[in-house]
């Protein structure tokens, strides 16, 4: 007797994309039911929804990031398709290539099954969601705030979100080191945190641009006039492509450096006696304020007039941000380990 074969493409899709320990059993169950008389449409529906359920329950968010990369890619293609004159600067190809790299990293993450690696990636994903929310909030304030809102407000928003971003990228590396005791895995987690956050932000920002193009044109009126471009929509798209290419490159670089620094910092601080950790908790904000103040002062000067201590300011702020999570986790861990008061 000839055995009926379920749709081969659906089977291959589930084989490739099923997550969790029961992927093979799900496929076997679906094939068994198909051969007992279920329709091809039923089989396809079950396969696609099994993949979606798998994506939704995956705590490292590899599958969600694959979908995020595709969504961002699709929105860029639609935006450029609506305004073909935005092409021509090479930005489109740069963005597509970078998104391809993000997609490839997401696929790699999606396929990882090692316990330690998944622990690190979960830390990265959790911090990445937090960072994504921060970046969305910052972008929404910038986008929806009344035009011409005070420079001080914008400065606080910009500086606040940037510092939070740097702190969270460091926290991802530090938290991953704490779970795995591996600097390499901490850096992978930091990169994953950055990738998740960037994909969240780009999905949000590009959706806004597509849905409220008129608002985007009004928002970018001054730079549009300065650019001399005649098609306002094309200018908005080109501006988005430029911003996307910057963030797609800068965040992973920052993530790489900060997660490395924070994981080393955590490894070092863990060995400290409690008194020293408490002392560091008091001094780190001061180091950070000193670093941030020197950067603030430098920002008010012409580039040529900036004194050499600016680099020391960057270093101080960076050290403070890398140390924030390690100090906090070191202190909270020791508090939990203290014997109960009698």
């Amino acid at each position: 007797m000839k055995i009926s074969q379920p749709p081969i493409l659906a089977t291959r899709l589930l084989e490739r994309l099923a997550s969790g320990p029961h992927g093979d059993a799900i496929l076997g169950d679906l094939i068994e039911q198909y051969r007992q008389g279920r329709s091809a449409a039923w089989y396809w529906r079950q396969v696609l929804l099994a993949i979606l359920v798998g994506l939704a329950k995956d705590r490292v968010l590899g599958g969600m990031a694959i979908l995020g990369s595709l969504l961002v890619l699709l929105m860029i293609i639609v935006s450029v398709g609506r305004h073909p004159s935005s092409l021509g600067s090479g930005l489109f190809l740069t963005d597509i290539t970078l998104l391809g790299a993000y997609g490839a990293y997401s696929v790699w993450v999606w396929r990882q099954r090692g316990l330690k690696l998944r622990q690190a990636l979960t830390a990265g994903a959790q911090t990445g969601i937090m960072l994504g929310v921060v970046l969305i909030a910052s972008h929404a304030i910038e986008w929806f705030a009344p035009f011409g809102s005070s420079t001080a407000v914008q400065l606080v928003r910009g500086a606040g979100s940037t510092l939070l971003m740097l702190g969270l990228l460091g926290a991802a590396g530090s938290a991953a080191w704490q779970r795995t005791r591996s600097v390499k895995l901490a850096m992978i987690a930091g990169l994953w945190c950055g990738a998740v956050a960037v994909l969240i932000l780009l999905s949000f920002a590009l959706t806004l641009n597509l849905a409220f193009e008129a608002h985007a044109v009004a928002w970018l009126h001054e730079p549009l006039v300065a650019s001399g471009m005649s098609d306002p929509g094309a200018f908005v798209v080109r501006n988005s492509l430029e911003a996307a290419s910057e963030i797609l490159v800068r965040v992973p670089i920052a993530a790489f450096v900060l997660s490395f620094g924070a994981s080393l910092s955590n490894a070092w601080i863990t060995k400290w006696p409690r008194k020293l950790a408490v002392l560091a908790a008091w001094f780190t904000p001061l180091i950070f304020v000193a670093g941030a103040a020197s950067l603030w002062y430098a920002d008010s000067l012409q580039r040529s007039d900036r004194p050499p201590f600016v680099m020391a300011g960057i270093l101080a702020a960076g050290i403070a941000l890398c140390s924030a999570h390690p100090i906090w986790s070191s202190l909270s861990r020791r508090r939990r380990e203290l014997p109960p008061a009698t």
Binding site: G20, P21, H22, D29, Q46, L49, A50, L52, V53
Partner: peptide, 26 residues
């Protein structure tokens, strides 16, 4: 998987997704 999803389908009279059954089992 198959008899578990069938038992739930019979008691609820609704189609059950195999992915949801395994997600719950996991």
């Amino acid at each position: 998987g198959v008899p578990i999803s069938r038992a739930i389908e019979e008691s609820t009279s609704r189609e059950v997704l195999m992915g949801s059954v395994y997600a719950a089992l996991e």
